[in-house]
Simulated assay, not measured.
Amino acid sequence: MIRRFGEAPLRGKTYVLRPGAYGILARGNKLLVTLQSKPYVEFQLPGGGIDLGENGIAALHREVREETGWKISSPKFIGSFRRFVFMPEYEIWAEKLCHVFAAQPVYRLSAPTEPFHTAHWMTIREASSLLGNEGDRYFVSRLDH
Score class of each variant (00 low, 15 high):
78 I>N: 10
118 T>S: 15
90 Y>E: 13
117 H>D: 06
101 F>V: 07
39 P>M: 11
35 L>Y: 10
16 V>L: 12
86 F>Y: 15
71 K>A: 14
63 E>N: 14
38 K>M: 12
21 A>F: 03
126 E>C: 00
98 C>D: 12
10 L>W: 00
88 P>C: 10
43 F>Y: 15
74 S>A: 14
24 I>D: 00
137 R>D: 03
135 G>V: 01
16 V>S: 06
78 I>P: 04
86 F>N: 02
97 L>F: 08
56 G>I: 01
108 R>F: 02
115 P>T: 07
63 E>W: 00
34 T>W: 04
9 P>R: 01
125 R>F: 10
51 D>P: 02
132 G>A: 11
55 N>E: 08
53 G>Y: 03
74 S>K: 15
130 L>V: 10
74 S>H: 14
123 T>Q: 07
86 F>P: 06
135 G>N: 04
131 L>C: 04
55 N>D: 15
113 T>A: 12
109 L>V: 15
29 N>P: 08
22 Y>T: 10
32 L>G: 03
109 L>Q: 12
49 G>H: 10
110 S>A: 13
61 H>D: 13
22 Y>P: 02
51 D>I: 06
115 P>S: 10
88 P>E: 03
138 Y>N: 05
114 E>W: 11
70 W>G: 06
138 Y>T: 04
72 I>K: 08
25 L>D: 03
34 T>F: 03
14 T>D: 13
33 V>P: 10
97 L>R: 12
40 Y>T: 10
127 A>F: 10
113 T>R: 14
70 W>A: 10
93 W>S: 09
54 E>Y: 01
20 G>T: 07
120 H>F: 05
79 G>D: 09
31 L>M: 08
85 V>I: 14
50 I>R: 01
50 I>D: 01
130 L>C: 09
56 G>L: 09
107 Y>Q: 14
53 G>Q: 00
102 A>I: 14
